[in-house]
Nucleic acid binder design. Structure first.
Length: 553
RNA sequence: GCGCCUGUAGCUCAGCUGGAUAGAGCAUCGGCUUCCGAUGCCGAAGGUCGCAGGUUCAAAUCCUGCCAGGCGCGCCA
């Protein structure tokens, strides 16, 4: 709504030769907190007063006259100093409804990707086991965030960084190899810090089934471990992709850590930093002067044994992202990595990039509750509920909605009992029911009146005069603004609030008014038109979240 | 010890770029269906916004200290 009204105002100024140079960006449209100050207000008079060399109050009155001629403004008031309060007319809201009908499940979405190119990296789980709930939450948040930036007009690249180079993978190989050997020799030692999960045994069995001869006869132990590592990594990465697909999350780029090493990108990045004099040697190791850029101390990038640290690879990774020329990047990380951020940021600043080029969203822990008790999870023993198990238990939509509904920065309690309830105790059902309810009315319209609202039709919207109808239209018109707001503040959880609020207004409208009206076809069509618009907006929000718009339930 | 996050109604949480009686849902209590799905709607009750100071005309919101919970402080990843 703000954007449309802003365009309208700028247009009026232009037509009256009032759009002076440099003025455009300064003119702001705000929504006043109090209803009596109108639907929107603008500071235009203050801005123009300098160019016109008049007092803001005078300019405001001049503008008021111009604005009043436009049918989108029902009333224009000049407040105290020169603020102009705008009361939007129904004609505007009717336009919004038409838009909601035309744009279907992409209501208010930017038509062009002209805001710039960004990269959002999320999940990036080690391919050493199935995804757990924390990954799931990160996946949902990252996915919605990506959809949001896409919605407001950014070209978004979604990326998963595969940690396939370090010790974790080696450990994985050793674990699988040990389980493999144990099949024939149960007393074969299992590595102390190996991966204990049952899935390791399953992979070992599979390898045993297909590759027993090869491993036992043709490979030495080191080669065998490497083989197991590679096999397990590919297997698990595949599982991760499947898990993500369950909640509708897909990536554009799968970026391999090993790729960085194989293509000399680590050396390349470090060379660049070295050329800036930011690298030095101490105690047989190479250090980066991160303390110059706000980190609490310098960090090792190459250990005294000659191998690189994880940090070194990460520097190379982000140097690569930097070379890819994004306007900015967002990383979605588990909160347990927050202590790592200052050094990465320091490295990026060392490239010569401005600080706010990188944004990190930290995802706090997920606790699971069932039958009123916390389900304890231990990663060490491999005894944890996986994302897949949760999806199987409560369904994809509930998982998405619950993960999305809380501020990523707060701890999340996931109550399985509530997610399973088919009642309004369960917000997912509440919002989905709103959608299904409209579809239900449409089916009834078809049956009773032989009128199918699913097809295109026209309606006389001036018949929508009820308070609930007008406030519903008004709320719809603010939704693109709210989505925009949620996006640039990186607060994807607000989408669930907006959805819930819209659903609530719909339920209320449904309760107080009838849509299928025996002897007033015009009114019936007008109301069905409004319902259809609401349903499209719901679909838009569902689409951003990845939730299914069910027709009946 | 230092750093980051969190602490709002019995429970789960919004609100936190300061603004007027602090909002939802669930749970509790009381209403609303001859009529498009009551998987809904309306109302009541319920809060020292962790505690203590400070800034301000105005603080849940900003600052300081403290308390509680979580996380992090490696030549690990």
């Amino acid at each position: 709504m703000k954007q449309e009204i802003r365009d309208k105002i700028l247009n009026i100024l232009k037509q009256n030769n009032l759009l002076f140079e440099g003025v455009e960006d300064k003119i702001k449209i705000e929504s006043p907190k109090e209803e009596k100050f109108g639907d929107l207000s603008t500071n235009a008079a203050f801005i123009l007063s300098k160019n016109l060399n008049k007092k803001p109050f005078e300019v405001a009155n001049q503008l008021k006259e111009l604005f009043e001629k436009d049918p989108y403004f029902e009333k224009v008031e000049v407040a105290g100093g020169g603020f102009i309060n705008l009361f939007i007319s129904d004609a505007f809201y009717h336009q919004i409804l038409n838009k909601a009908i035309e744009e279907k499940d992409e209501f208010g979405k930017a038509k062009e990707k002209n805001k710039g190119k960004i990269n959002i990296e999320y999940v990036s789980a080690n391919p050493t086991g199935p995804l757990h709930l924390g990954h799931g939450r990160g996946a949902v948040v990252g996915n919605i965030l990506s959809n949001l930036y896409d919605y407001i007009g950014y070209k978004v690249e979604r990326e998963f960084y595969i940690n396939d180079a370090g010790n974790q993978i080696k450990k994985l190989g050793m674990s699988v190899y040990a389980r493999f050997r144990q099949i024939e020799e149960p007393s074969y030692p299992f590595p102390e810090d190996g991966y204990h999960g049952e899935y390791i045994k399953d992979i070992a069995k599979e390898i045993y089934h297909y590759e027993r001869e090869k491993i036992l006869s043709f490979l030495d132990e080191e080669e065998a471990i490497e083989f197991c590592a590679e096999y397990a990594k590919n297997f698990l990465l595949d599982e991760i992709k499947k898990d993500l697909k369950l909640i509708g999350v897909e990536f554009d780029i799968w970026y391999s850590e090993r790729h960085l090493y194989q293509h000399g990108k680590v050396e390349q990045a470090l060379k660049f930093l070295e050329s800036k004099g930011l690298i030095y040697e101490k105690d047989g190791a190479l250090w980066l002067k991160t303390s110059l850029y706000g980190d609490e101390k310098d960090r090792v990038i190459r250990k005294s044994d000659g191998s690189y640290t994880y940090f070194a690879a990460d520097i190379a990774y982000h140097y690569d992202k930097y070379l890819r020329n994004y306007d900015f990047i967002i990383n979605v990380w588990g909160a347990d990595h927050h202590g790592y951020f200052p050094r990465l940021k320091a490295a990026i600043m060392a490239f010569g990039v401005k600080e706010d080029w990188i944004n990190v969203l930290f995802i706090q822990l997920v606790k699971l509750f069932k039958n009123g008790e916390e389900v304890k999870m231990s990663k060490r023993s491999g005894d944890f509920i996986t994302l897949r198990e949760l999806v199987e238990e409560v369904g994809k939509d509930a998982v998405i909605y619950f993960f999305a509904s809380k501020d990523p920065n707060t701890h999340l309690n996931f109550d399985i009992d509530i997610a399973l309830k088919k009642s309004n105790e369960n917000p997912v059902f509440y919002v989905q029911y709103a959608h299904a309810r409209i579809s239900s009315v449409f089916r009834e319209a078809q049956q009773r009146f032989n009128f199918n609202p699913e097809e295109d039709f026209e309606a006389d919207l001036s018949l929508l005069k009820e308070d609930l109808e007008r406030s519903l239209m008004k709320y719809i018109s603010t939704i693109p603004d709210e989505i925009y707001d949620a996006t640039i503040k990186n607060q994807p959880h607000k989408i669930t609030n907006i959805t819930y609020e819209l659903a609530s207004r719909l339920h209320k409208y449904y309760y107080y008014h009838k849509f299928l009206i025996e002897n007033d076809e015009k009114l019936m069509k007008a109301r069905l038109y409004l319902l259809k618009a609401v349903r499209n907006v719901l679909r838009t929000l569902f689409k951003i979240m990845g939730i299914t718009p069910v027709e009946r339930m």
